[in-house]
């Protein structure tokens, strides 16, 4: 591993403390990951705040971007969860913006990708499922459990169906978090591997430099793909959040 440290595709995911901090026996240092979380929210908030500062009736380009994001998430939530779902608009919008901006920042060389860590995506997923469960029980009481009992299922199949429904519900936070995490992780590793090829081949002289054109082209194409994935995964995360929130609002299928 030491020999490959120059092009080690895992190196980019390492976390190192910037300001060491220990509270109650836990290491809660301000790390590079924390730094990029701060960068993410500062950039996202700053952009949304500055671009709408003019409150222009006819929006400029930047204000249009903010408005498009706002209406995009708003329509997504309204389509999935109806008018009642709009009370979760701030949550879904912040999740979408946070994941999107974190993904996009991660595409810059030497930048840390916050969403490439399972614990981050899992915490966000738990936040979503926690909201669904808490709101579901608060609104419908035990009626929320109807979520696990679909209509029109014959009695002898019911135990099986309920078991499947419960398992699928429990696996939601896992699938939600692993999907985002795995996409970001795999994308960044692949990108790094192909970029590593370029460096290694270039060290082999003229033939190597000529040969390194192929992995370079691949890295360029992958960068474009990763840009798409960054948007797509933020979108998927937000859409699934909307659908799960819809379950909390309307538990009976």
């Amino acid at each position: 591993m030491a020999a490959a440290d120059k092009v080690d595709p895992i190196h980019q995911f390492q976390i190192h403390p910037i300001i060491p901090l220990h509270i109650g026996g836990y290491d809660v240092s301000f790390t590079n990951s924390s730094l990029f979380m701060v960068v993410t929210i500062v950039l996202a908030s700053g952009f949304l705040y500055m671009s709408t500062a003019g409150r222009a009736l006819i929006p400029g380009r930047l204000q249009s971007i903010s408005e498009m994001a706002y209406e995009f998430v708003g329509n997504m939530l309204r389509d999935a969860a109806g008018k009642q779902g709009m009370q979760f608009f701030p949550l879904v919008f912040s999740l979408f913006m946070f994941v999107l901006v974190a993904n996009l920042i991660g595409l810059f060389p030497y930048f840390f990708t916050v969403t490439s860590h399972i614990i981050v995506t899992f915490t966000l997923a738990i936040l979503v499922i926690g909201t669904v469960v808490v709101y579901g029980f608060a609104k419908h009481g035990l009626g929320f459990l109807k979520l696990f009992v679909p209509h029109g299922v014959p009695g002898y199949l019911l135990p099986l169906v309920v078991a499947i429904e419960v398992i699928s519900f429990v696996s939601r936070p896992v699938s939600l978090s692993v999907r985002l995490f795995a996409n970001m992780l795999a994308g960044h590793i692949t990108l790094k591997v192909f970029s590593g090829f370029v460096v290694s081949l270039s060290a082999l002289g003229a033939v190597g430099i000529a040969g390194s054109v192929l992995p370079l082209a691949m890295a360029v194409a992958l960068s474009a793909l990763e840009l798409l994935v960054a948007f797509l995964q933020a979108y998927v995360f937000a859409v699934l959040t909307c659908m799960y929130l819809n379950d909390a609002l309307h538990p009976s299928h």
């Binding site: 901090l21 301000f30 790390t31 979380m37 701060v38 993410t40 614990i119 981050v120 915490t123």
Partner: peptide, 16 residues
């Protein structure tokens, strides 16, 4: 690294 990441995520995302 989990405690640190969770704590800072909660702080930053909460503020956001």
């Amino acid at each position: 690294t989990f405690p640190s990441q969770i704590l800072w995520l909660v702080i930053t995302f909460g503020l956001f």
